[in-house]
Design a binder for these strands. Structure first.
Length: 614
RNA sequence: GCCGCUUUAGCUCAGCUGGUUAGAGCAUCAGUUUUGUAAACUGAGGGUCGUCGGUUCGAAUCCGACAAGCGGCUCCA
């Protein structure tokens, strides 16, 4: 979905100016922040003092924007010496612009990230880094701007204002809060409609909505925000996905371990997490001892203690532990939402301890597992190789880093990953591979990750005895295939729109009885028993409702196979299954005996085929 | 945590500018019906209108605080 055409970029940028023009016409006292292009559109940060914009103002702003567009004002570029520009900003009562200009003058950039925190917004003194700055003018509206723009306001394609939100000036808490008005924009009316339709579709698939409709999970005010409770159906979903992930682990030689969900806080003082993530810890108080406890926010330190419990030989390595377990993080309330961001995070977590020369094999296996998992789920993958840059924030021996990074790079080649390298994205403790999965709507989500860790083995003094009798440090490899299972479910529910393939479907077959007579219900029960014996998830619907109504209910619950049972089926022992539309059927299901039908479905489930077209 | 919006029955929603016993559809329950591939019929139960406080003769309706949800910001080992 990346839009990279320079023209479209210019259109969006110009629309930001046009919106600022429109807002300035209506509220001349407006103080403007920045108005950049973002994915799919643009925004402008505005400060209207006491006046709070709301979405009700959109109609008026859009109308005014259309007027500006209709006026087809040319965008004129001109430059001013930087000091004149500052004077202009002061005169125009644009303090935010003035601040930007001062940054430009002093540092040659306005990018907050590139400026030291204490430098931000300080008036410039002495020599200027830039001599001149550029402006764009359309009609009466003039704005400090690097450009580029379209020729004139008439040439901006199609747009729509979308929403409004609070945003700190320059993203810094403590700075004045501005209002950010977002719009989307595309080259043509048609592209805009396509995009809006995609949003509609995404809304229909929203996992929170489907979670409610398909009875997958709930929240309770009494339990608390960010703590999802999984219903029987939702639990099936979770379990099938984790079972699959776990089965891949077993093949790669991981051993299952099991740890408590709390620990003395001392553990995190040793690991170093206490200082870095202390605020995210849920603290637990003992009424018995004076020790301070915490709910675990990650599993590695616990797993490390299993490794450290006895001397390890180079011959034992790699030692690989895995576990599907839940960690708890006291996320800020404003960050929580559906299953995407929760406070109880289940992970299919693993830690492998290996000799440096084994890193390639260990990571290679994991990369293979990630590929198998996501191709089975019908999602394409992209990998980001997160390496270090030249700064000194990274711990561990540089030589280890270099070797590991080149190992990772060659693995990416060998596994023909669709990858790119990102310098400076590594964790301070080691390089990593982050996987992004693309869903059915073309949205990309960060999912699995494989991280090398040179630091924790050091902190916990993890060792093994080498061939020559010396003591050495193992390298640790963290990996979660699904990542956060809750977040993964949110992605997967939206990817499939709730039409789960047979192997994950909470209910695979629904039997609908035509009436409630003993003979009919008895027959259905017998089929149910057979199905259960084959490991299938089946439900008999013998409610006192019309067949049409019961079909409808099964359809709404997106059950893959529905079978109506009446006199005909009892007499012939054959059935005509009703098959959910997205399921591609190779075999001829038309005239099956119940026995054959159940076996076919059981095989489909067992082989984890996803014969669905999403 | 910050800004804005929202919160009425299990679900989806109505309830005009504060004024008598707060409504609907679906769901639930009961009865009738014994049903053939996307909604049978009749009836009943169910809400201290998110919570607490305030204004008022009177609050679902106005104000405040808190909580939860939503959209963003920020953060994300």
């Amino acid at each position: 979905m990346a839009e990279s055409q320079p023209e479209l970029h210019a259109m969006r940028h110009s629309l930001a100016h046009i919106m600022a023009t429109a807002i300035t016409r209506q509220w001349p006292e407006v103080r403007l922040g920045v108005g950049p292009v973002v994915e799919n559109g643009f925004y402008y940060d505005v400060d209207l003092g006491d006046k709070q914009l709301s979405e009700e103002d959109f109609a008026a702003i859009e109308a005014e924007m259309k007027k500006v567009i209709g006026e087809n004002q040319p965008f004129e570029r001109f430059t001013k010496p930087v000091d004149e520009a500052i004077a202009w900003a002061q005169e125009a009562h644009q303090p935010y612009k003035e601040e930007l200009l001062n940054d430009l003058k002093r540092s040659g950039t306005t990018v907050a990230k590139e400026l030291d925190a204490e430098e931000l917004g300080i008036a410039a003194e002495g020599d200027s880094k830039v001599a001149e700055v550029s402006f764009y003018k359309n009609g009466d509206f003039t704005d400090l701007c690097r450009g580029p723009h379209v020729e004139s306001t008439g040439k901006v394609g199609a747009f729509k204002l979308m929403r409004i939100s609070g945003a700190y000036w320059r993203g810094k808490e403590g700075n004045p809060q501005m209002q950010r008005v977002y719009g989307v924009a595309f080259a043509t009316e048609k592209d805009l409609r396509t995009y809006l339709n995609m949003l509609e579709e995404a809304k229909k698939r929203d996992h929170r909505k489907l979670g409610q409709e398909l009875d997958l999970f709930v929240f309770s005010d009494l339990v608390g925000s960010g703590l999802p409770l999984f219903t029987p159906r939702g639990t099936v979903l979770r379990n099938e996905l984790t079972k699959f992930a776990e089965s891949l682990r077993a093949v790669s030689g991981f051993q299952r371990v099991s740890i408590p969900h709390i620990t003395k806080t001392d553990l995190y003082k040793v690991s170093g997490h206490w200082d870095k993530f202390g605020e995210e810890l849920f603290l637990v108080k003992s009424q018995e001892t004076s020790d301070a406890f915490a709910l675990k926010p990650m599993n590695c330190p616990h797993h490390n203690q299993i490794y450290a419990a006895r001397p390890r030989s180079y011959r034992d390595l790699p030692i690989k532990y895995f576990e599907t377990t839940t960690v708890y993080r006291d996320e800020k309330t404003g960050e929580l939402g559906g299953l995407s961001r929760v406070r109880s995070i289940s992970q299919d977590d693993s830690h492998a301890y290996c000799r440096p020369e084994q890193v390639g094999d260990v990571v290679g296996d994991l990369v293979g597992d990630v590929q198998t998992l996501y191709s089975t789920l019908g999602m394409s993958l992209r990998a980001r190789l997160s390496f270090r840059d030249s700064s000194d924030k990274y711990l561990g021996e540089p030589q280890l880093w270099d070797e590991a990074q080149s190992t990772i790079r060659s693995l990416a080649e060998k596994n023909s990953l669709d990858y790119f390298e990102a310098e400076g994205e590594a964790a301070f403790y080691g390089p990593k591979i982050d996987f992004m999965a693309t869903d059915a709507l073309g949205r990309e989500h960060q999912v699995a990750t494989i991280q090398l860790d040179f630091v924790q083995p050091e902190r916990f003094s993890l060792e093994y005895v080498a061939e020559d009798g010396s003591t050495k440090r193992p390298v640790m490899v963290h990996c979660a295939l699904l990542g956060s299972i809750e977040r993964f479910l949110s992605v997967y529910i939206e990817h499939t729109a709730g039409k789960f393939p047979v192997w994950v479907a909470p209910e695979q077959i629904r039997l609908i009885t035509v009436n409630q007579e003993d003979e009919t219900v008895g027959f259905a029960r017998k089929i149910e028993e057979q199905a259960i014996a084959l490991g299938l998830r089946i439900v008999v619907d013998n409610d006192n409702e019309s067949v049409g109504k019961k079909i409808r209910n099964a359809e709404l619950m997106k059950v893959p196979y529905t079978v109506v049972i009446g006199q005909k089926e009892i007499e012939t022992g054959e059935l005509v299954p009703r098959i959910r539309k997205d399921i591609e059927v190779n075999e001829n299901h038309d005239s099956h005996t119940f026995d054959e039908f159940l076996k076919t479905v059981a095989n489909e489930a067992k082989s984890r085929v996803s014969k669905t077209s999403l």
